[in-house]
């Protein structure tokens, strides 16, 4: 049976969809069979993040409405043969279906995959509830902004009230230069503040911002961070990427001051 992990956040725009797509690709490249589900019904972008937006014929709404079988709605990723996407493409689906409907649909294909990653909408409305209740584990994506941290705390409490005990955090777009200067929130402070385990830290990276559905460069720091996250998902332990590393030492201080002047 597949491990069902929902990626959520309180605040929007923290990078959930990008992370789901890249973590999915990385897990698939490590020989895991992965299904990505876009549960963000009305503001769906998972298809775009993976560059398959032109291949959508059926979507989750069609599956739930009985217009097609679930496998007919799957789209195979362009880069990873073990990665499939179940897109969501219709506005009208927003209020029609419950978490139980999606859960039942996913149960039928659960044996075919090792991981089912669910991209949840931001906020704590019905869409969020629907996405979270389909999963056994939750990952709350945050960035260093105080708004994101405050919202994440509320989201974590709600998820725990649904009896999902395995909740972890990914600190996205972490600025190592700011952390070194004492301005940014450090990963350790975040962990303490939100009283939640840290699955990983992803640095602020141009490589992620300019993806446009393509594969992430193996040379990028974001790729390294995502590999470490996948290792932690697979084994339950491992290191966490340290975004301050390249800002340490003499050359690091030059990099910091250059970044500050930008």
């Amino acid at each position: 049976m597949a491990r069902k992990i929902v990626f959520t956040s309180g605040k929007g725009g923290v990078g959930k969809t990008t992370l789901v797509s890249q973590i999915g690709r990385k897990l698939a490249s490590l020989n895991n069979r992965v299904l990505l589900v876009d549960a963000d019904f009305s503001l769906n972008n998972l298809d775009l993040a993976l560059g398959v937006e032109n291949f959508v014929v059926y979507d989750l709404f069609d599956v739930l409405s009985g217009n097609c079988r679930i496998r007919q709605a799957f789209i195979k990723d362009k880069y990873e043969k073990n990665l499939y996407i179940l897109p969501s493409d219709k506005l009208s689906a927003n209020s029609s279906f419950s978490a139980q409907n999606i859960k039942t649909a996913l149960l039928g294909v659960s044996k075919l995959f090792d991981f089912i990653l669910i991209d949840s909408p931001a906020g704590i409305d019905n869409g969020f509830k629907r996405a979270v209740l389909c999963a056994d584990e939750a990952v709350v994506v945050i960035n260093s902004s105080f708004e994101s941290l405050r919202d994440a705390d509320k989201v974590i409490n709600i998820i725990k009230s649904y009896d999902i005990d395995k909740v972890s955090l990914i600190l996205n777009r972490a600025r190592g230069d700011l952390m070194m200067s004492g301005y940014g929130v450090s990963a350790e402070n975040v962990k303490d503040l939100l009283k939640c385990s840290l699955l990983g830290v992803v640095p602020d990276s141009d490589a992620l911002l300019t993806l446009d559905g393509k594969k992430l460069s193996r040379l990028s720091s974001a790729d390294k961070a995502i590999s470490m996250i996948c290792n932690k998902i697979l084994t339950g332990r491992g290191d966490i990427y340290d975004p301050t590393l390249k800002y340490k030492g003499f050359f690091g201080s030059i990099k910091r001051s250059l970044r500050k002047s930008n």
């Binding site: 941290l149 004492g182 301005y183 929130v185 450090s186 402070n189 503040l193 939100l194 966490i240 340290d242």
Partner: peptide, 22 residues
């Protein structure tokens, strides 16, 4: 890897209080 804890800024303490209140 053990991360260094940043010294908590005044703003961060404000956030801590806010979250506690929430």
């Amino acid at each position: 890897m053990a991360f260094r804890k940043n010294k908590k800024s005044e703003e961060f303490l404000r956030l801590e209080n806010l979250i506690e209140k929430d």
